[in-house]
C-alpha cells in the first residue's frame, strides 16, 4: 500500500520518465512549520551576545568623527624609556646595513678589491683615519700584507649622523678580533667640520698628509 503512493505497481509504468512523473505527482508539500520556542540556552546566548555587543561599542567606540584612526578617546601617554646608547649594538646594525656587503660579515674583505678590517693598522690606529674614510670614502690602490687592493668606497657623510659614525667605527675597532678605544661622537663632529669642503674620496697619500697636518 505504502509503495503505491510513490511508484504504484511497477508494471503500470513504461519508462523512467513516467515513473518520475508519477512520483512527483504524489510528492508531498513541505509540512507546515512547528512553533517551538527553542532551548533555554539559546536565549542565554542571545542575551550574552547583545550584552557583549553593547559593552564592546561602549568601550571601544572612540571619538565619533571623520578623523582617521582615532583609536580610543583618551590614549594613554606612551612612556618613552630612555634607552641607553650602546655603540656596539648600534654600530653592528649600521655595519650590517652599509658595510657588510663589501667588507664581509667577519671583516675579512675581498682580496684585490676591498681591504680587510680585521687586524688592520688603520682601523685600530688613529681613529681619525677610519672616521675620515667612513665620511668621505676611499679610492686608489692600497697595499697591505703583500696584497694590493683597488676599489672605490663611497662616502657616507650625508647618510649617517655623528653618533652613527662613532658607533660603527667603535664597532669595527672592537670586532673581528680587533681591540681599540671607543670613538666619541664629538671627535666625529670635529673631523666632519674640518673636512666639510671635501667632495671626493680620500686616496692613501691625501689621507696620510691630512693626518700628519693635524
Amino acid at each position: 500500500m505504502a509503495d503505491e503512493r510513490y511508484f504504484g505497481d511497477r508494471e503500470d509504468y513504461q519508462s523512467m520518465e513516467e515513473l518520475h512523473r508519477a512520483a512527483m505527482e504524489k510528492e508531498e508539500q513541505i509540512p507546515e512549520e512547528g512553533n517551538e520556542r527553542g532551548p533555554w540556552w539559546m536565549y542565554v546566548i542571545i542575551v550574552l551576545t547583545l550584552a557583549f555587543g553593547f559593552f564592546y561599542m561602549g568601550r571601544y567606540l572612540g571619538e565619533i568623527s571623520d578623523r582617521p584612526h582615532v583609536l580610543f578617546a583618551e590614549p594613554e601617554p606612551a612612556e618613552l624609556e630612555e634607552e641607553e646608547f650602546d655603540p656596539m649594538q648600534v654600530g653592528s646594525r649600521i655595519y650590517t646595513r652599509l658595510c657588510q656587503s663589501c667588507h664581509q660579515q667577519d671583516g675579512s674583505g675581498v682580496e684585490g678589491a676591498f681591504p680587510p678590517l680585521d687586524g688592520s693598522d688603520w682601523v685600530i690606529g688613529d681613529p681619525q683615519r677610519p672616521v675620515n674614510i667612513v665620511l668621505h670614502g676611499f679610492e686608489g690602490e692600497i697595499a697591505r700584507n703583500g696584497v694590493t687592493y683597488n676599489a672605490l668606497m663611497p662616502g657616507f657623510s650625508r647618510l649617517v649622523s655623528d653618533e652613527d659614525v662613532a658607533a660603527v667605527v667603535t664597532y669595527i675597532r672592537n670586532s673581528f678580533g680587533n681591540e681599540a678605544p671607543e670613538v666619541a661622537p664629538e671627535e666625529v663632529a670635529e673631523i666632519r667640520d674640518a673636512t666639510q669642503d671635501r667632495t671626493s674620496p680620500w686616496t692613501e697619500d691625501e689621507l696620510n698628509e691630512f693626518i700628519e697636518e693635524r
Partner: peptide, 30 residues
C-alpha cells in the same frame, strides 16, 4: 585609516551575527 568608531560598530555587528546563526542552527538541528 578608517575611523575607529566605524570599525568598532562593524566588529560589534559581526559578534551580533552569533544570534541569527545560533537560532538558525538550532532550528535546523532540531
Amino acid at each position: 585609516p578608517l575611523p575607529t568608531w566605524f570599525i568598532t560598530i562593524s566588529i560589534a555587528a559581526s559578534v551580533m551575527m552569533i544570534i541569527p546563526v545560533v537560532v538558525v542552527a538550532v532550528n535546523h538541528h532540531m
